[in-house]
Amino acid sequence: MSYAIVGFGAVGQALAWAFARRNIKVAVAGRRPPEALAPQARAIGPTVVAKSLRDALEADTIILAVPFGEHRGVAKALPSWKGKTVIDAMNALVPVEELDGLLSSAFVAKAFTGAKFVKGFNHLIAATLAADPIVEGGHRVVFLASDDEDAIAPVATLAKQLGFAPVNLGRLNEGGALVHARGRTWGQLIFQDLVKKEQ
């Protein structure tokens, strides 16, 4: 399984730290060319490799960590998303009217036709996401939601490999609504830093 993070701002870099900590190879791409991102990527760890957007999208699993709205440009970079898993780590700080009455991930998913689409890694602030997830005798929780049941399992496996405790909230418009930002409102689980104690 190959991974890429698209967006190399605070959240993208935080996720890159999570991959580097576990020596898992991940491509990173952003607005700037790869040669401009390379020094930051190398500073995080040798398994973090800066690539062009086109090259990064060759990965099996792509984590969206771009500012909301820029996902459309990412979606247009591939003619088909079939066979790809897309993890939406964005939060939509836009008026509800701009989302066609949908939750943000359901809105974003429409642009990635054919992809397995999962909401995840979006409820923690970047500094917390970047920190070691093994704390207080347990693992920091990440919430996952998807309308595709088959898509959750491999993302949950990735979360565990990164040291997190994945919690499946179910469908996007059910449990997933708890981790969505819409307009000026936040889902009830946004910013909740929970730890699952080891049994």
Rank of each mutant, 00 (worst) to 15 (best):
T128Q: 08
L144S: 01
A77M: 07
A151C: 07
P79T: 10
L57R: 08
H139C: 15
G114F: 04
K82H: 09
A92W: 12
A127N: 05
A56N: 09
D88C: 05
F68Q: 01
A50P: 14
P46V: 08
V96S: 15
L103S: 00
G138S: 09
P154E: 05
T113Q: 15
D150G: 15
V167M: 14
A126F: 09
I125D: 10
G114D: 02
P95N: 02
L162E: 03
P67A: 09
H139A: 15
G137I: 10
V94P: 00
R72W: 03
D148L: 04
S105A: 11
L158E: 09
F121V: 01
A89P: 05
V66M: 03
L129T: 03
F68T: 06
L162I: 03
V167H: 06
A65M: 12
G137Q: 09
D55Y: 05
K119A: 05
L57M: 07
S146W: 00
T128L: 06
D147G: 06
A109V: 03
V118C: 07
I152H: 13
E98Y: 02
P95Q: 08
D132R: 14
M90Y: 00
V86G: 04
L158T: 11
F117W: 02
K76T: 06
G114N: 03
V48N: 14
I63E: 00
F143S: 02
A159S: 08
H123Y: 11
D132G: 06
L99P: 06
F117V: 08
A131V: 07
F143R: 11
G137E: 06
G69V: 02
R140Y: 07
D147A: 04
V96Q: 12
A75E: 10
A77L: 09
E136T: 08
E149K: 15
F164T: 05
G69M: 10
A126V: 05
P133K: 08
P166T: 00
L78C: 03
T47M: 13
D100L: 02
A50F: 10
L158G: 00
R140M: 10
E149S: 15
A156I: 07
V118K: 11
F121P: 05
F117Q: 06
E149P: 12
L64G: 14
I152G: 13
L162P: 07
L102A: 01
R140G: 08
P166H: 10
D150M: 05
L103W: 10
W81H: 10
R140W: 04
G163V: 11
V142I: 15
I152W: 10
I152N: 08
E58A: 13
A151L: 12
A106P: 04
L144T: 08
T157L: 03
I87T: 09
A59W: 13
V108M: 04
D55V: 10
E97V: 15
D148R: 08
R72Q: 14
K82E: 14
R54F: 12
L93W: 08
I62N: 06
E149R: 14
S104W: 03
V66A: 00
A109C: 07
A131D: 13
